[in-house]
Design a protein around this nucleic acid. Structure first.
Lengths: 196, 196
DNA sequence: AAATCATTCATACGTCCGTCCGATTAGGGA
DNA sequence: TCCCTAATCGGACGGACGTATGAATGATTT
């Protein structure tokens, strides 16, 4: 009967995912996870043999959620500029968490990038999902030739804004810069690409 | 005779600083430090009682070097635009290290920002040194009212570019975006601030 | 009702960590 | 020369970590 099992496994993954974000992967212990998941110490080994396996599951979990989110946006918004605006709305919607813990993708990749190459490659795919989706939007907006360039630039801006607001715990900066990004997108949509 | 001592202490700080950058603070052990510094295991305790103290010393070490660097730039370059360009030249000069390990300041702050608040506050000062220096340059360039805004924006762009090139190990992106930043600075210097 | 197997636990192993100590060496002032 | 102290070592402490085991539990199937 894998019914109950699935739910327990899911509880572990979600608790671990949250802890990895809040405390960092290396700073999160097995004990932290089992405590947060409300699972007895030894039971976790039934589902995951190593800590790395938990991280893999957490990354997969994030991957699925992002895919769903992007699909949802494709359905909810008709124009590419609306979708791009929805993307940067993440900054204001998640302002609190970003200030406290930084960008979930960015901080995880940064941490794994220091000597945990195999795992970082998996986390890198989270970025690539956004990049390819953003590229589609820019292409549809009329920037087919520079779609990837613009996508990466937008991602970089988001990362920079997240990092700085995290470092300084400065919500004002985050919101101001998000507005600045918003105006940049509007200029792009109007075809005025002098500043792109 | 504190002569020899000073040099040993310095060796420890420099080795630790390098390891903290390459491996991260939490992933660096005492053993790593003593091995890299070529100091016997127990001797390190003579200089630093705790690991946190080593980090404090490393941050202080970085602080002094940055201060020297900024002073040097003030002496070497006469115009603010030259100085601003020198700042972003960091990106191309350190391209290799950034690709491998990310921005030294950014990654350290990001790591410490997750549950090590006291230490993060110290690392935050590294950012503030650059910000205040950059503010001075933008003010001198004629943007007195928006100097801090522009300084923070430039820092954020640097952080974003570093993060993205680190995540993807993409030197091309780093150099392209640095050039893009360069053109942005030139536009600012020419008084065309439509895109600022 | 018995057999089976997924799942739940408490507990323990070995390792490495940060920390600390005690003994030893070395070098300059008296 | 002797002495005092700065500095150097090797080694060991307790604890936490990731990992592992095996017995107990409970539901489902036959």
């Amino acid at each position: 009967m894998p019914r109950k099992s699935e739910r327990t496994r899911q509880r572990i993954v979600e608790a671990a995912n949250r802890l990895f974000y809040h405390k960092g992967y290396n700073q999160t212990s097995f004990s932290d996870v089992v405590e947060a998941a409300g699972v007895p110490r030894g039971n976790i080994y039934y589902y995951f043999k190593t800590k790395d396996e938990i991280l893999e599951a957490a990354i997969k979990y994030r991957t699925e959620r992002i895919a769903q989110m992007l699909e949802g946006w494709n359905g909810s918004y008709r124009t590419p500029i609306e979708r791009l605006h929805r993307f940067i709305d993440i900054l204001s919607n998640s302002a609190d968490a970003i200030m406290r813990y930084g960008c979930p993708m960015g901080t995880l990749n940064t941490e794994l990038g220091k000597g945990q190459g195999e795992l970082q490659e998996q986390a890198e795919n989270l970025f690539k999902m956004f990049e390819s989706w953003l590229s589609d939007q820019f292409a549809e907006l009329g920037y087919a030739g520079r779609a990837r360039e613009l996508a990466l630039r937008l991602m970089a801006q988001g990362q920079g804004i997240s990092t700085m607001s995290h470092v300084h715990s400065d919500a004002g900066f985050l919101l101001r810069e998000k507005e600045h990004l918003s105006r940049w997108l509007d200029q792009l949509a109007e075809g005025n690409d002098d500043c792109a």
